[in-house]
Nucleic acid binder design. Structure first.
Lengths: 368, 368
DNA sequence: CTTTAGCACTCTTGCCTCTCAAGTGCTAAA
DNA sequence: TTTAGCACTTGAGAGGCAAGAGTGCTAAAG
């Protein structure tokens, strides 16, 4: 009962045929597909063996065989020929990947949408920081007597701003005092350090504008919270309906609802494990979540730099074209890593990217 | 052949029963539901009359009747009792509506998600400006020798920023010159006015930092374009699957794909017509888009202020609980109008809102 | 003129049965 | 070890049948 070369060939043919057609495949069909010089009876024997070994399943007697999760696993690990993206494919992706605005959240969201569009599966995308985010700098800009803008920049080079309208008048010196105070007392501290004590001493130091400071600090806290909260973006759930395993509306709806929950998902893929930008495949029961036990997840991680990492992936039936999907995902992940400038340059910004600046860094601009 | 009081009562009962059960309703059932003191035969006669008048349809002989689009129309216009939201309902919505960050785009997106969640229908939300957006002010903040932040504020009080990294060093005086130049030459102008000529003269005036200016201006142009481009946010397409009219996967998928296209939609609802914050109902064939001919759209518009308006709505089968949906939508639209401070105060901002500031203006804070 | 009771008619739905085709497992021979 | 042959299993699909729901029509009653 061993995995001979012919059996591997048969298994691979079954997986690939089933991926393509979604229909159980019989012994006769295999003979032709895999260019095997043997009769269907021989193949039947091998198929029976493969089933005994756990690589194949029978939906019912007298239907053909379909791959089991274990069968998909060995296919992904050993039998699968890695797909090379065609020029057209990469060109298409690059075209869409050209993003004007590069605010972290929007880029991730957009990347997820693209992945979904190019794979025809629902996608998810998220980013997560390893370190605590802090604010490194504040600037207050006076607009008129009762409004000003606060600009805050984090250690991850994200810049946020907010316009304040006040009921009472303020003066330039007041703002400057406030600005100095913020930059001395409220920089380099993670969210937890924004204690009541700190606020109290700051309030005293602020003198006449003690009311203002709490406004600005609460903005700062929002910025920190927003930056740390890694939200999961999902897109393209509708693509599920294109696959025959989701003919059943109930089933499709359940999975879609699970994906829409958008908590949970973030815990599912601990970004531990291989730090490299490899792809990972989770087949059916390999998933922890009960809701995903009969679906597969393919994901790739990418490097954002500034102590942050991201994950992007797709969800679908176990019958997935793993070869193509992994190729597309890893291409997308690589491009995201490049887009964010790897860990070196900190290009991450909260608004537009200049067109044509820094030619040596902006490689992805040229691929367009 | 006229619409007697009893017939109206029957029609209303049919619509409401059908909305609830999604099943054709027969003459006997109506008798009980509508408290009519007459036999099923009488009702049958009236139903036949209502069908002849075009208010009802028969899926096939010997099934009950269902409302036609025309039937829904008269129901919405004349027969429907307007739904009052319960305290629990409003409380629930208010709870979720409490938004920390109030960047226009995010608020709209979030509002759409809430609407979908509270109505169980797919939702869409968009904002659109009446006037051209211009930038009223620039601020350049120096970070170090080769990076600075540009902050730009539009006439709609939206503030955007961007961090620039440069290959070469800059000095404070250079930045100040640039800043002044931007504020004199590139403010108050809509996107089209950013001509090559303008750039050329600005470049000359910029002297040594002529390279920088094009970077910043291209950022400004992105901001303007971004602000003018009214994107449609859709959410909760999966809810379609909860309704029996979308048992058919094909049908559901078609509509979902249409919604995901997210162009088209914006043109469908010309924000002309009633400017008030009323709700509108488009029933089946009343929709212009071919894809929506057998679905209904309910929408409400709200006022963003600063010359901008927004629309929020849901899409679903013609069998919709119009009473509840319109109530929920108009409540949401009202709250959005309030949130944005109506046309009076220009609270619209690109980041956090102070908690507890300006008590007289921030009414919605107290409803929480 | 309007309402009601009665009845024949229509049409869908669910269920049962039957047949067909596909594919298997097993056995015996090459 | 491979192959040919054959009996067996099973799901999918077609057809038929009965039940149930609802209608339209007619004739009588208010």
């Amino acid at each position: 009962m061993e995995l001979t070369a012919r059996r591997r060939k048969i298994l691979r043919a079954i997986v690939e045929y089933y991926i393509e057609t979604a229909e159980p495949v019989g012994s006769k069909a295999i003979g032709k597909l895999a260019n095997l010089d043997c009769s269907s009876a021989t193949i039947r024997n091998d198929m029976a063996a493969l089933e005994k070994m756990g690589y194949l399943e029978q939906p019912h007697t007298s239907a053909g065989r379909i791959p089991s999760p274990k069968g998909y696993r060995i296919y992904v690990n050993e039998l699968m020929e890695h797909h090379k993206l065609s020029i057209q494919e990469t060109e298409k992706m690059n075209e869409s990947l050209h993003l004007k605005m590069r605010e972290l959240d929007r880029v991730i969201d957009q990347a997820g949408k693209l992945v979904s569009q190019f794979t025809n599966y629902p996608s998810f995308a998220l980013a997560e920081g390893k370190e605590r985010v802090t604010i490194v700098r504040y600037d207050l800009l006076m607009i008129d007597q009762n409004s000003f803008i606060c600009v805050a920049m984090t250690n991850t080079n994200v810049v946020k701003n907010k316009l304040f309208h006040l009921p009472s008048d303020i003066t330039e010196p007041q703002l400057q005092l406030l600005n100095a105070l913020l930059n001395t007392s409220f920089t380099g501290k993670p969210l937890e350090a924004f204690s009541a004590d700190l606020m109290e001493t700051a309030r005293k130091a602020a003198g006449s504008s003690y009311g203002l400071i709490s406004l600005v600090v609460s903005f700062a806290m929002d910025v920190l919270q927003d930056a740390e909260h890694s939200s999961v973006h999902t897109a393209g759930a509708r693509h599920l309906l294109e696959h025959p395993e989701y003919r059943d509306v109930e089933k499709a709806h359940k999975l879609m609802s699970y994906l829409a929950k958008d908590d949970g998902l973030s815990e599912l893929f601990p970004m531990t494990g291989q730090d490299g930008s490899g792809t990972r495949v989770l087949i059916g029961p390999e998933n922890v979540a009960e809701e995903l036990k009969d679906t597969s997840v393919v994901l790739a991680s990418y490097d954002i730099g500034e102590g942050m990492k991201g994950v992007i992936g797709v969800v679908g039936p176990t019958r997935m074209d793993y070869a193509k999907i992994t190729a597309k995902l890893s291409y997308m992940a690589d491009n995201l890593s490049k887009l964010f400038g790897g860990s070196s340059s900190g290009q991450l910004q909260s608004a537009a990217q200049p067109k044509g600046l820094n030619p040596p860094k902006d490689e992805e601009e040229e691929q367009k």
